[in-house]
């Protein structure tokens, strides 16, 4: 969510985009700035980027990869796990296990959504991957619902949720925590603090 995303692989494509971006790559022609030698690294607070050389892959943050892709300045290399076989295995494993299985990336859903929406042409078998990830997601959300239900029924005060990703937590998190808070108050017989309902200044 707010963490810097795991980087996608990024490759500058000098040949394929000749019609859109100048065939000559731009990086080497960048003027040196502030006494630096002509260096192709782009300094960033979240770590340096580049160097960007035509044809060579570079690791960049996801937001930059998507932006460059939208400007048709690069080709994206999908992460290793974004592969039909691996994802099939992952889905079957997820269906077999009672508990949540570890995901290949803590942001698997966000990553695949962004990559598949913006760079489907760079990902082999994009449609199959989309379906597989959706199936895994559905299985996990169903598990989450069941366990939330159990949590509420058994009136637990603590639950452990390993391997649940941030996005999965936020889909039902806000609702669940509020509901639990209300139920706790009802059960412990506490009156809501005076004025909760009426006096919001």
């Amino acid at each position: 969510m707010s963490e810097p995303f795991e980087s996608g692989w990024l490759r500058r494509d000098a040949r394929g985009r000749a019609g859109v971006s100048p065939a000559k790559p731009r990086s080497p022609s960048r003027p040196p700035r502030e006494g630096q030698a002509c260096c192709q690294n782009v300094p960033e607070p979240q770590g340096d980027l580049g160097p960007f050389n035509p044809g060579l892959p570079a690791r960049v943050p996801l937001w930059l990869a998507v932006n460059l892709k939208r400007r048709q300045k690069c080709r994206l290399l999908p992460p290793d796990w974004m592969d039909v076989e691996k994802l099939e295995e992952m889905r079957d494993h997820e269906r077999k296990e009672e508990t949540f299985t570890p995901m290949p990336s803590p942001h698997y859903m966000e990553l695949s959504q962004l990559l598949l929406n913006h760079a489907a042409d760079n990902i082999p078998k994009a449609d199959e991957i989309r379906t597989l990830i959706k199936e895994t997601w559905d299985t996990r959300i169903a598990k989450l619902r069941v366990s939330a239900d159990r949590f509420v029924r058994q009136q637990e005060a603590h639950a452990r949720l390993d391997n649940l990703t941030l996005l999965e937590i936020s889909t039902s998190g806000a609702f669940l925590t509020r509901a639990l808070g209300r139920m706790y108050r009802l059960r412990t017989g506490l009156q809501p603090p005076a004025g909760t309902q009426s006096q919001d200044f």
């Binding site: 603590h158 452990r160 649940l164």
Partner: peptide, 8 residues
């Protein structure tokens, strides 16, 4: 370390 929880 690294585990995730739901708690008051």
């Amino acid at each position: 370390e690294g585990s995730q929880h739901l708690i008051r």
